[in-house]
Nucleic acid binder design. Sequence first.
DNA 1: GCATTTACCTAAAACGTTTAGGCAAATTAG
DNA 2: CTAATTTGCCTAAACGTTTTAGGTAAATGC
Lengths: 355, 355
Amino acid sequence: MGADERVTERSQPARAYDRAVPQDRQVTIITVAERAGVSKTTASDALRGSGRVSEETRRLVVGVAEELGYVPNDSARHLRRARTGAIGLHLPEVLPRSDYYMSFVFGAVQAAADHGYDVTLLTSGTGVAPSRSPRVDGLVLGDPLADDPVVDKLMGSALPTVTCERYSGPGEPDGVVWSDHGAALQTLLGHLSDAGARRPALIVPGDESDWAASVHRAYREWCGQRGVALITRSVPFDANADATSAAARSLLTDEPQLDALVAAPTSAAATLLPVIREAGRRVGEDLLLASCVDAPALRFADPAITAIDVRPREAGAACAELLFELLTGSAVPGVERIHPIELNVRESTQRRRAA
Amino acid sequence: MGADERVTERSQPARAYDRAVPQDRQVTIITVAERAGVSKTTASDALRGSGRVSEETRRLVVGVAEELGYVPNDSARHLRRARTGAIGLHLPEVLPRSDYYMSFVFGAVQAAADHGYDVTLLTSGTGVAPSRSPRVDGLVLGDPLADDPVVDKLMGSALPTVTCERYSGPGEPDGVVWSDHGAALQTLLGHLSDAGARRPALIVPGDESDWAASVHRAYREWCGQRGVALITRSVPFDANADATSAAARSLLTDEPQLDALVAAPTSAAATLLPVIREAGRRVGEDLLLASCVDAPALRFADPAITAIDVRPREAGAACAELLFELLTGSAVPGVERIHPIELNVRESTQRRRAA
DNA sequence: GCATTTACCTAAAACGTTTAGGCAAATTAG
DNA sequence: CTAATTTGCCTAAACGTTTTAGGTAAATGC
C-alpha cells in the first residue's frame, strides 16, 4: 500500500471525514414537521400516504419536504421496520464467465433499483461470518455450485432465497429461476443433425452446476434415443481457454469421425477456432461448431458461431423480481419460474461446401 | 414475467416473509446484558472493547453473547453512528470489458469485507435519484467517463470519493488510484522496437476515459521523439470485436508498411487474429501484435499475445483501501496513489523467422 | 484522616423513523 | 336532538445501538 503516493494541492482545506461536523443540521422529518406546523406522525403519514391526513395538509407537508430537500434516513427506517432495504447477490468468482455474470449483475441491480432496493455483493468472506449480521433482506444465488461452502452457508440462513438454476446441495431455495438448457441443447443437436452432422461431441463441465448437469443429461438422452455414440470430454466449471482447448485437441485426435462440436463453457467455442484449424479441420465445412452459452466473442468470431442465448441480463432481473415477490408475499415459497432461452443460428453450423 | 410458473410441494408450509413473526425474540444487546447480569452499556463496552471494563466481566459478556448467538443490529448501529457501513461502486456497463470489471469488483468487495464494509453497486438509475438517500458512506468510481451523467451526479455528492484513473469531468475526487499506462505503453513500444518493429500502429478509444487519453498521448510522444509516423485508428470506449476488427482491417489495408499493431481495448487483440490472417500477415513473423490490457483470452490465444497486465483485482482493492483511509482520516483528501502495472511479453511480439 | 484519583459500572439520552392508540371536532344515523 | 361514527390530527412508545454524564466503592496522595 502507498508505495507511491502524492498529495495535490486543493482549493478546499483538507478535512477528515470521520469527524466531519454536519455543516447544516441534517434535515429530518422533525424539521419538516416543525416547519409545516404539524406533528411528526402527521408528517410521516402525509409523506408516505399512510394514516389519515387531509389532502390539504398532505400537500403542505410534501411541499415543505421538497423545499427542504428532505430525504428519509434509511437506517432509522430499517431499524424501525426490521428491514435492510438491500438484497444480497452471490456469484461464483469464475473469470471465464465474466461476460455472463456481468450482465446478470446489471440485470439484478436494475430490477432492484426499480423496487427501491440496493444490491450487496457477497463473496467468500462477506456477510457470512457468524459474527456479522447479514445486512440484506433476501438472497439471490447465481449458479449455486453444489460444492461451494459459501453457498452452503447462505442456503442455511433463514433469509428468503432465490437461485438461478437449481441447487443440488442441501436445502431448498424459496424460489428458482431456471432455463431449460436440456431442451435447448436438444434443439441445437437437432439443428446440427439437420445440417448433416452424424457424430456430435460435447465438451462440458462436471455436474456441480445444475446447468452443466442438464446439458450433459440432455446430450446422453438425445444420443441414446437415436443410437448415436456418446463423445464427450469433461472440463472444470471454471475452465479457461487452455483447458477447453486441450479437451478439443484430445477430441479431434482421438475421434477422427467427429463432425460437430458443442462446447458448453461460455465463449469457449471462440478460442477453439485455432485448435480446429491446427487439426486441419474447417468449421462450417467438415466440422460444425456451436456453444451452449452465447457471448459477444461468438457473434464476432470468424466464422460467427452458433450459440444458445441464455439472456443473462433478463435472468438476473427475473431472479430479483421473484425475490421481491417472495418478500411481499405475492409469490409463495417453492415457486419455480422458467426463463426462456433461444438458439442463435450462425455460420459455424451452416454447412458450406469445401471451397 | 411469470410466463411459465409452477410451485413444488414443500415440507414446510408456505409462509409469507413480510409478516413473518420472529420465531424467537431477536437476541439483542439487552438480552445479553440481562443474561450476564450487567447493564447494556457495560455489555456494549465489553463487546466492543471501549470504555473501562474489567477483564473478568468482559470475558463473561463475550461468553454469553457467543452462547446466545448475538449479532449486533447494523441498522441500529448505523443510525446511532450516522454511518451506513457500505460503500458504493460505480462501473461503466461496458460488456467487452467485463473481464476487467469483474476482477475489479471482486477486489473491491474483498477489501471492503476485510474492513467490515459492504459494497453496493450503483448504475444509472440507482441511488442517484434525489428522492433517495445514498445509502453509502463513500464512493468508488471505476473508469469514470467524462461524459457519463451518473458519474457527474455522484461526483457532485458530498460523499468521499475515490476514482480509479483520473476524472476529467467537473469536480475533483478525494482520492485517485491510477496506473501509469503511458509509461507502460512506452515500455511496450520500446520492446516492439527492439524486436525490429519500425512502424507501430495503435487502435485506441477516444479521450473520454483518462486511460485511453494517457495511452494515446504516450504514443504520440514516443513517435514524436523518434520521428516515427503516427498510425492510429479510433474506436468507441465500449468497442466490441466488430468495431475493433473494422479498425484493424482499415489499418492493414491502408498502411501496408505496418509492422506492429497495438490494440488498447481489453482482449480486442485476440479477436484480431483472424483479421490479420485474412489480410495475409503472420503474427510474430511479419507483424507484431500486443494489447494494452491483459486478459485470459490473450494468454491462451495462438500465438499468445503480449499485453500489459493492469492487475484489476488489486486495483479494485486499492481503491477501496484508499477510500477507507479517507473515511478514517488516515489519508487526506487530494491523495493520489500509483497502482503498478507490468508488461507480459509473449509469443506475439517475439519475432520468429517466417517458417 | 480527609481529599482525590482510579476502576468499574449504571441510567438515561440520543439517533430518525413508524405505529398503536387516543382525543376532540365534524359528520352521519336514528 | 342525541348517539354513533368518521375524520384529522397528536402523544407516546417502540426499534437496538452508542455515548454522555454520572455514581459508588476501593485505592492513593498529602
